[in-house]
Amino acid sequence: MEVRQVDNPDVQRQKVEDIISAYRDKPGALIPVLHEIQNALGYLPRWVQYRVSNIMNIPVSEVNSIISFYALFSEKPKGEYAIGVCKGTACYVRGADKIIEKLEEELGIEAGDTTPDGKFSIEVMRCLGACGLGPVMVINDDIYTRIKPDKVKDIINAIRQKDGSETT
């Protein structure tokens, strides 16, 4: 499995500047700007919000208000292993909430959060279009189908083991 790459801070800063300046004089561009920055950085840290506010002349409270309104935007960085669990109707009736519960238990965080070591994050997703295979879970680019709650621990442990052998 590929580990998600995180840019170094200077590269991040440059990417943010480029995105903002591409949109700076376009009215109503706040949401597309936030969207692009989130795609580039994986999340919307506070310094980004201040930068967007300063350059685009939109109060930082409003920028933050919008980010906090839409579930799509996140203020927290995703983990190196970003776990997404589908909670669309089909996956839900097949027990997606049990999967989420197990993940929360195993990782010690709530859905929407990232572990303190930055390794894992849990995100609740909308329908991924694989309803026949539910419940569906995605970790970075790998897709797990028809998961049973008692398999969750094994999946996480397998990643932990692999990750440990790579870094040591």
């Binding site: 919000q49 109060p59 930082v60 933050n64 906090s68 309104f69 203020e75």
Partner: peptide
């Protein structure tokens, strides 16, 4: 000044500065 705005939504909304 716009120091404060509604942050969050629904029952969890608070009137507060950014973040």
């Amino acid at each position: 000044v716009n120091a404060i705005a509604p942050i969050g939504r629904g029952f969890k909304t608070v009137i507060a500065p950014a973040g």
